[in-house]
Amino acid sequence: MLVEGIKSRPVYTGLSIQPRARRHIFALEGEGAHALLDRKPALDDTALSRSEILYVARGSQGKGNDEALRALGTDMFFAAPTIATLLFRLRGTLTTAHMGTRLYIAGTEGFIGQAMMVALDHGMDHASIVTEHRGSLARRVQCVHCKGVTEDVTHSPFSCGHCGLPLLVRDHYSRRLGAFQGVNIDAEEPGSAPDPEELFL
């Protein structure tokens, strides 16, 4: 379960299929595949004929899911080798999309954030995008000092991958950056940072 009570963090309400959508685009990462596979009963022939799946396995956690997703029989299926290539394809799809197209994103929070940023760039309202968190609780964190983003942060404090400052991961999330905020933990007394704790696994 994700920590609750963070006002700025989006609520990932689950991949409910919008029955009236003219086109469904599913952006799925790793275990996020199950968010859609679990909804198989809600996907009738009409929905399948209007659906496009963009999937990235990301390491071993998503093994075998691409076959299962392909077997759903959606109109289009694309297995991307990396998140970057998936996002590139998503951009292309949204550029020519019409109103009535609904976007569904499932996977880790960092992935949801990045796919959401692409959708916002195409004029979609974040509240209209359907999301579900699946997989690791690792956080995508932006260092507030050097602005560098570190992926898959599981510990706090952690060392910024860009400037090296020890960062506390604040419970403050930016949808626009798709990241939590990392702030130097020992600024007031350099060298006083506590040992890292594994908090987001």
Binding site: Q18, R20, A21, M99, G100, R102, A127, S128
Partner: peptide
């Protein structure tokens, strides 16, 4: 609008 799949935000 809703039947055409438009989100209420639009």
């Amino acid at each position: 609008g809703l039947e055409a799949g438009w989100p209420e935000q639009n």
